[in-house]
């Protein structure tokens, strides 16, 4: 392995640990806003993973949509709740052993599936530099009649449904 690949591996492990560790903190912390801030750290870790894969569009979309919009929405939602935001109850209920077992079983099963995949140890093929603009390709694919134009328009309808539904639920003018 070259120095570049080793560094990429190290960065991958750091950002994966950051993502998972802050995800644990989201459920472990007792202040709601702190949980939201840990969630942001976790989402940022995912953005770093995308950056390591050179997926520029996904990096910026991750930051713009998840950190810039969804996390802010969470924080606004938290500020709508009761004044005392500190959760004082126990953080685990009686069936935590069962939940842990199911979680471990799922993890084990997934690890088994992934390890039996042959492409696991192979290095990814490098992206030819400067020859393709992946965002332009994505755009062309989204609007070509023989490709994804229908999903593109349906996405708009889906967003419309989400907006109307959310406003209907959240906003009841008396």
């Amino acid at each position: 392995m070259t120095a570049e690949q080793i560094i990429q591996q190290i960065l991958f492990f750091i950002s994966a640990a950051l993502t998972l560790g802050s995800a644990v903190m989201v459920v472990a912390t007792r202040k709601l806003i702190q949980a939201a801030l840990w969630l942001i750290v976790s989402l940022f870790g995912v953005a770093v993973l995308y950056a390591l894969l050179d997926a520029s569009f996904l990096v910026v979309v991750q930051v713009v949509v998840y950190i810039g919009a969804i996390a802010i929405l969470f924080i606004f939602a938290v500020m709508l709740t009761q004044r005392d935001q500190r959760d004082k109850g126990p953080q685990l209920n009686k069936s935590w052993v069962l939940a842990a077992l199911v979680g471990l079983a799922t993890f084990g099963g997934l690890t088994f599936l992934v390890s039996s995949w042959t492409g696991f140890g192979a290095a990814a093929a490098p992206i030819p530099a400067g020859t393709v603009d992946m965002v332009a390709d994505l755009g062309t694919a989204l609007v070509s009649v023989d490709q994804y134009v229908l999903p593109f328009e349906v996405a708009s309808v889906l967003l419309l449904a989400a907006l109307i539904g959310a406003i209907y639920v959240a906003y009841n003018r008396k």
Binding site: L73, L142, S156, L159
Partner: peptide, 21 residues
């Protein structure tokens, strides 16, 4: 914030469209 989220996602969809156009 809700309305913003929906229109933000919309804009993200529109950027590849604008490039391909």
């Amino acid at each position: 914030a809700l309305a913003f989220l929906i229109f933000d996602v919309e804009a993200v969809f529109l950027f590849p469209w604008a490039i391909a156009m």
